Amino acid sequence: MSRIKLLLFVLVITNAIYAQDLQLSQKDSIVKSSWMVGLGYNFVDDSGSRSFEGLFDVEDNWNALAYPSRVSIGRYFESGLGIEAIGAYNKYKVGKIIDGAVNTIETDYFSVDARLSYDLNKIIGETAWFDPYVGAGVGYTEANNVDMGTYNAVIGFRTWFSDRWGLDLSSSGKFAMDKAKGNHLQHSAGVVYRFGAKKDLSKRGLEKLALIEAFEKENQRKADSIAAKKAEEEARLLAERLALEKEKARLAAEEKAKRDAEEAKRKQFEETIKGYGDIQFGFNSSYLNSKSRAALRKVASLMETNPNLSIQVNAHTDSRGESTYNQKLSQSRAKKTVAYLVRQGVSAERITSEAHGEQHLLNDCDDNIRCSEAQHRVNRRSDFKVIKF
Rank of each mutant, 00 (worst) to 15 (best):
K93N: 12
K96C: 05
G100K: 02
G100A: 03
A101F: 11
T104R: 14
T104Y: 11
I105T: 13
I105A: 10
I105F: 08
E106L: 01
E106G: 03
T107F: 04
D108V: 07
D108F: 13
D108R: 13
Y109W: 08
F110T: 08
S111C: 03
V112N: 14
D113E: 10
D113W: 08
A114S: 11
A114E: 04
R115E: 09
L116I: 11
L116N: 01
S117A: 10
S117L: 07
S117V: 05
Y118F: 14
Y118H: 03
D119K: 00
L120I: 00
L120W: 02
N121K: 08
N121S: 09
I123K: 04
T127E: 00
F130G: 00
D131L: 14
Y133G: 01
V134S: 02
G135Y: 02
V138A: 11
V138S: 03
G139S: 04
G139W: 02
N144F: 15
N145Y: 09
D147Y: 03
M148I: 14
M148C: 10
M148N: 11
G149L: 06
T150S: 06
Y151I: 11
I155E: 00
G156D: 00
G156A: 04
G156P: 05
G156W: 02
F157L: 08
R158D: 04
R158I: 08
T159E: 01
T159H: 06
T159C: 09
W160R: 12
F161P: 00
R164E: 12
G166E: 02
L167A: 00
L167M: 04
L167Q: 03
D168Q: 06
L169S: 04
S170T: 07
S171A: 15
S172R: 08
S172I: 01
G173V: 15
K174H: 04
A176S: 11
M177N: 12
M177L: 10
K179D: 15
K181Q: 09
K181L: 11
G182K: 13
G182L: 10
N183K: 01
H184T: 01
Q186G: 01
Q186S: 13
Q186H: 14
Q186W: 07
Q186L: 12
G190D: 07
V191R: 11
V191T: 08
V192P: 02
V192L: 08
R194T: 06
F195T: 02
F195S: 03
G196I: 01
K199I: 07
K203L: 11
K203D: 10
R204T: 08
G205W: 00
G205D: 03
L206C: 05
L206M: 14
E207C: 04
E207G: 06
E207W: 08
K208T: 05
K208I: 06
K208N: 03
L209H: 05
L209S: 12
I212K: 12
I212A: 12
I212D: 10
E213N: 14
A214D: 15
A214M: 06
F215I: 07
F215K: 15
E216I: 05
E216H: 12
E216P: 07
E218L: 13
Q220I: 09
R221N: 12
K222Q: 13
K222A: 14
A223C: 02
